[in-house]
């Protein structure tokens, strides 16, 4: 597990069926671009989160391909439709093979 990588998501606790909600996600990750050099002049290899997906009850909401131009601590804000109560699942994929996940329940109001 790449060290210190923590995902955070902001999802409302409840919504009416059919409501549109705003979701924000942030994950602490250096996003080493592969452009920087170390003190000896060698390129520091690229090591980034390369993909982010959000799903609700198994259906896809958004699927993002990230390149090194995404800033450190990748941040995304997007909108989802909530057809029923259930669980949002968020997944981040690291170049080094690690996968970070977090989930958030949402109730019907």
């Amino acid at each position: 597990m790449a060290s210190g990588v923590k995902p955070r998501v902001k999802v409302p606790k409840s919504a009416a069926a059919g409501d549109i909600i705003t979701i924000k996600t942030l994950i602490s990750h250096k996003m080493e671009s592969g452009q920087r050099k170390d003190d000896d002049g060698n390129i520091i290899p690229r090591s980034i989160i390369n993909r982010f997906t959000a799903e609700f009850n198994g259906q896809n909401v958004i699927d993002v391909v990230l390149e090194p131009a995404i800033s450190t601590n990748p941040f995304f804000e997007f909108e989802a439709v909530v057809p029923e109560a259930g669980e949002f699942k968020f997944t981040w994929y690291d170049d080094d093979g690690d996968v970070y996940e977090t989930a958030k329940q949402i109730a019907l109001s």
Binding site: I20, I21, S33, Q35, E55, F56, Q59, N60, V61, I62, D63, V64, V65, L66, E67, P68, A69, I70, S71, P74, F75, F76, E77, F78, E79, A80, V81, P83
Partner: peptide, 30 residues
């Protein structure tokens, strides 16, 4: 895309069936 960056690709957002609006925000490096 960012046409002055070493690599122009920045991100691709694919919207699924439960996406409410075809919109997204993020922070990028230029």
């Amino acid at each position: 895309y960012a046409d002055g960056n070493p690599v122009p690709n920045v991100a691709t957002f694919r919207f699924g069936p439960l996406s409410a609006s075809r919109s997204a925000s993020t922070r990028i490096r230029l």
